[in-house]
Design a protein around this nucleic acid. Structure first.
Length: 214
DNA sequence: CTCTCGATTAGCT
DNA sequence: GCTAATCGAGAGA
């Protein structure tokens, strides 16, 4: 941790409103110590997942399973799951205990550990190192071993270094890839993107309005 | 047990 | 723009 950085603590994650935390996370730094080295990135894109009423959430209807159990922990722990059998998606659990809010980290800009990330992402252009939720995990070596990890520990954490992103540089859009949740929930503008950097990630994965299944 | 499908990505047309 | 890759969670029998 640098001397100018403040590691986020429980209170920072306790906010019951996931959209507010998702916005708050933009400009913070996601830091990961791994066996092959340390790397970090400034968070540039997030998505909020709500409580039991959110049909897009794995914990919809307070569904408690071995996978979703960690979502009911108090804010400040990591929720990682395997998506499409290939990609590990990293979420930060937020809100109070027994309330399953979460924030998906969709993109970061690598700010330290470039040499290590280059080794982890051979042949990948730097701008795509962590421009997507699966890519964030690939770049920062996040895996299932981080499931339930305490973000107040020494392995994976978030730092506030005083970066302020102007409101005009932050865009809100509907979440990506949640058409299965139905119109109402898929339309919620719960994705936050810092538009001050490169082009937002994930937009190509979006189904055309009309081609959505169901 | 069996079946379906996904909070995606990379590579090709 | 299209889709294979790849596998476990979750639901239902």
């Amino acid at each position: 941790m640098t001397k100018t950085g403040r590691k986020l603590v429980r209170a920072d994650y306790a906010d019951p409103k996931p959209t507010r935390v998702a916005r708050y996370f933009l400009g913070k730094f996601l830091c990961v110590r791994a066996p092959d080295g340390y790397a970090e990135g400034m968070i540039t894109e997030t998505e909020a997942y709500g409580g039991p009423e959110d049909k897009a959430s794995h914990a919809c209807g307070n569904r408690r399973t071995p996978r979703t159990e960690i979502m009911f922990a108090p804010g400040g722990v990591s929720y990682v799951y395997l998506c499409y059998g290939l990609h590990h998606l990293f979420n930060i659990i937020t809100g109070p205990i027994d309330s399953p809010e979460a924030v998906l980290i969709r993109a970061v800009k690598i700010t330290a550990g470039q040499e290590i990330v280059r080794r982890r992402r051979p042949g990948v252009a730097e701008k795509h190192w962590a421009s997507g939720p699966g890519r964030v995990s690939a770049a920062l070596a996040i895996g299932m071993h981080h499931y339930g990890a305490d973000l107040g520990g020494e392995t994976i954490w978030v730092e506030d270094r005083g970066v302020k992103l102007p409101a005009r540089e932050v865009k809100r859009t509907p979440r990506i890839g949640v058409e299965y949740a139905g119109k109402i929930w898929a339309a919620k503008p719960w994705r936050f993107v810092w538009a001050g950097g490169e082009k937002p990630a994930g937009v190509t994965a979006r189904a055309r309005p009309g081609s959505a299944r169901r």
